[in-house]
Amino acid sequence: MRVTVRLFARLRDLAGSGELMREVEAPATVRTVWQSLAAEIPALVEYEGTMSVAVNAEYARMAAAVHDGDEVAFLPPVSGG
C-alpha cells in the first residue's frame, strides 16, 4: 500500500523533501513507516526520541495503524509563538 510521508523543518531539510510517497507492507503502523524511512535516511534517527507524529493531520502514537492512502507526518520539537 501507498502512504504520503510529510516532514517538517529540520526533518524536511535532512530528507531533502517535505513530501514523499512510500510503499509499505500491510499491516503497517507509524513505527514501521518511520523505520523504513530512517533506514533510507539515517540522519533522521537523531529525532527518534524527540519527534511527534500525526496521521491524517491528527496527533498519533508510533503504534497507530496506518492504512492505504494515509498521510503520516513526522514533527520535530515545535518552536511557534
Binding site: F8, L75, P76, V78, G80, G81
Partner: peptide, 9 residues
C-alpha cells in the same frame, strides 16, 4: 502554543 502547535521558526 509553544508546547503543542506544529509551527517552526
Amino acid at each position: 502554543v509553544k508546547q503543542i502547535v506544529p509551527i517552526w521558526k
